[in-house]
């Protein structure tokens, strides 16, 4: 358990915009994921959480930084050298329908990675092996085998997400990056899929990076949480610690803003002012200072580094809400 599965160091991603501007989507991101862990990535739109997910799998090219997966530096591998590793890391997306080719049967969609990738002995899989694997996969994600001969549009959003998960699992990956996999689902269906993720993790010993904007969903599934704001991680640590006693004012504001299904008498809470600033021209110093209730003069000038707190979490704030001992 003490060897990291994925280690990212100093990841940066910049997009060149017309008129000579640059959008800094990721700014010096470092993180570590142990096998069997679930890292939740949270933040509001434009914070870079999806870009980070894609960069970690090398689906989007990095501007700089290194990624080590299972002890192997993958940040400079070319596409050819990446191919065998792709089996180990898969992705599940938010839009369950757009991820499935509408003209192909479910069986073909799930079997595709099995047909494309050779098995562990470097041989092509036989059709009977594939059949057997398909039956296994449908059972895993809770679909009936009759689903295999049908088309994507015949399924509801929740069922389609099960299909996407089955496809991601086909090659028995170690790591799954799930990008907002339940955001588009109705609440009653959302709970089913979250449970499915939990069950699969137990049964198959999977590791997840779970990207979501819903803190309650992230809390339910993650062992650790990284909170992102404008391309940078502002706080990272154990889920319970962060959600119970947030150290970064942004984390605290994010938690306070979640509408809970509980009637609160005289509910009054501090609301963040304004919108997330444009990532093209992020504020100076601490990026959050323009909206931060605790901001002081220094915050607009000095960029806070990620510093460790005694409980093991890291936070990028000059005045964290959890004090140093």
């Amino acid at each position: 358990m003490n060897t990291t599965l994925l280690h990212a160091e100093g990841l940066r991603k910049e997009y060149k915009l017309p008129r000579g501007q640059t959008l800094r989507a990721l700014d010096n991101i470092s993180l570590e994921i142990m096998p069997g862990e679930v890292l939740g990535l949270v933040g509001e739109s434009g914070c870079g959480k999806s870009t980070l997910g894609r960069c970690l799998l090398r689906l989007t090219e990095l501007s700089s930084g290194t990624i080590t997966f299972d002890g192997c530096d993958i940040s400079s591998l070319n596409e050819r050298a990446m191919r065998p590793l792709r089996r180990q890391m898969q992705m599940v997306f938010q839009d369950s329908y757009a991820s499935l080719n509408p003209r192909r049967r479910i069986g073909d969609l799930i079997a595709e990675p099995l047909r494309v990738h050779p098995d562990n002995n470097g041989k092509k899989r036989s059709s009977s092996t594939i059949e057997a694997r398909l039956a296994e996969l449908t059972e895993l994600v809770g679909l009936s085998t009759s689903a295999l001969s049908r088309y994507p549009h015949e399924f509801s959003g929740g069922q389609r997400q099960r299909i996407n998960i089955a496809r991601a699992l086909a090659l028995s990956p170690q790591l799954i990056v799930a990008d907002e996999p339940v955001s588009a689902l109705d609440v009653s269906i959302q709970a089913q899929i979250i449970n499915l993720f939990t069950d699969l993790k137990e049964r198959l010993g999977l590791t997840y990076i779970f990207i979501a904007h819903d803190l309650a969903v992230v809390r339910q599934i993650s062992t650790r949480v990284a909170v992102m704001y404008l391309g940078a991680i502002v706080e990272q640590g154990e889920t319970d610690a962060i959600l119970h006693t947030p150290a970064h004012p942004y984390t605290a504001a994010l938690i306070a803003a979640v509408p809970e299904p509980v009637i609160r008498k005289n509910a009054s809470r501090t609301l963040l002012r304004g919108d997330v600033p444009s990532p093209v021209s992020p504020p100076s110093g601490c990026r959050f200072h323009t909206r931060c209730p605790k901001a002081q003069a220094d915050c607009a000038i000095v960029v806070p580094d990620l510093r460790p707190l005694p409980d093991g979490r890291v936070v990028a704030c000059h005045f964290p809400l959890v004090n140093d001992p």
Binding site: E44, L254, P259
Partner: peptide, 11 residues
């Protein structure tokens, strides 16, 4: 909307 903005609009 994002959750922090949602809170403002609900308010």
């Amino acid at each position: 909307l994002d959750v922090t903005v949602q809170a403002q609009i609900l308010d």
